[in-house]
């Protein structure tokens, strides 16, 4: 089946005073209908930039190469007019800090009406507009929606604001929602509610979701597939069950090992040594090599290509972790 969104060798660089900085370096990614795909990686891996590229919302100094396809058609990501038609109605996006994502001096109602109007070519009466806005707010589980329409964002909690943003993005009934760390700024209990809401959107509307997050636990619970990014490249991707049970790339392994686990008696967490290098200070060869416990001489000279662990599970590494026993059994059966 044709994927909804497809990126082919996507490269994004930024023109800065110090020269061009490559931030996304050849990303191939496909998102199918009704899928929830987790996008993980440390801060600065280029996750947000990849998402913004798909939305056509990159900063002015961005230089984009490669292609992004929407339902098979190549997107003119630099064309604001063409992209604005798609945004809201086909692709939508929610962001990290819901308290600053909404305009602080306009009421929730006004901002919701705006989203509804953009996505409805014919004029709507005030009554119809309000009914639609209330429906949207109810859909995302905002209690007492009538009162919220007159409220300003600072009068609502972070969790409610995030729900309002989601409601706004649903106004045009998009097929793909990109959620860029939607819960990072929220309390733990609220985080779970928002994630639950996203799952509901998928099951009720068949919406595809790209979920950018630091929380591998959430990925394990909610996502069908996971994509691991490091320094602007995808280092491993595949079905969550396979990647998490048998991470082949040392980076994925490191991310999982630095996670506190309830089901394990092994309590000493090992964070990945070192820090993410800045995009303009990448060494030759595999970008992860300087931090990698497995790095061999070849890792510093050539860049590893994507290879299959099995038909769905891919990774890019010269000295990967071996296929473990569990997976081998699962394969055999």
């Amino acid at each position: 089946m044709q994927p909804l969104l497809e990126m082919r060798n996507l490269q994004v660089g930024f023109a800065t005073e110090l020269g061009p900085v490559p931030v996304v370096r050849g990303v191939d990614l496909q998102i199918g209908r009704g899928e929830i795909v987790g996008l993980v990686g440390e801060s600065g891996s280029g996750k947000s930039v990849t998402c913004m590229a798909a939305m056509g919302l990159l900063d002015d100094n961005a230089r984009l190469q490669g292609e992004i396809r929407w339902q098979g058609k190549r997107l003119a990501t630099q064309n604001d007019k063409a992209m604005s038609v798609l945004r809201g109605s086909e692709l939508a996006m929610i962001f990290q800090d819901p308290m600053s994502t909404l305009n602080p001096v306009q009421t929730i109602g006004k901002q919701l009406y705006e989203a509804i109007c953009i996505n409805h070519p014919e004029r709507m009466s005030r009554r119809k507009l309000q009914t639609r806005a209330l429906d949207l707010l109810r859909d995302v589980g905002v209690p007492a929606p009538e009162q919220r329409l007159k409220a300003y964002p600072h009068q609502l909690s972070g969790g409610l604001n995030q729900r309002v943003v989601i409601a706004m993005m649903l106004a045009g009934n998009p097929s793909l929602l990109i959620a860029d760390e939607p819960t990072t700024a929220l309390d733990v209990t609220v985080q779970a509610q928002i994630i639950e809401l996203l799952q509901e959107l998928r099951s009720k509307r068949g919406m595809s979701i790209i979920l950018v997050t630091h929380d591998l636990g959430v990925v394990a619970e909610t996502c069908d597939r996971v994509v691991v990014m490091y320094c602007g490249e995808i280092v491993e991707h595949g079905p969550v069950s396979k990647v998490f049970s048998n991470p082949r790339h040392p980076y994925t392994h490191g991310l999982l090992a630095s996670l506190p686990r309830i089901d394990s008696s092994d309590t000493n967490l090992e964070p990945i040594p070192g820090v993410v290098p800045h995009p303009d200070q990448l060494s030759e060869g595999c970008a992860f090599a300087p931090r990698c416990p497995h790095a061999a001489a070849c890792c510093y000279s050539g860049s590893p290509m994507m290879q299959c662990s099995d038909s769905e599970h891919l990774f890019a590494c010269f000295s990967p972790f071996p296929v473990n026993a569990e997976s081998r059994q699962a394969h055999a059966s």
């Binding site: 038609v85 945004r87 809201g88 962001f95 600053s100 001096v105 306009q106 989203a115 953009i118």
Partner: peptide
């Protein structure tokens, strides 16, 4: 960030400027 949100809703750049940036 709300300028980005406005565009994510489907506003064009100049519309977002007129409706959100100038008044604010």
């Amino acid at each position: 960030p709300y300028m980005r949100t406005a565009r994510a809703k489907g506003l064009r750049w100049h519309q977002a400027v007129r409706r959100h940036a100038l008044p604010n």
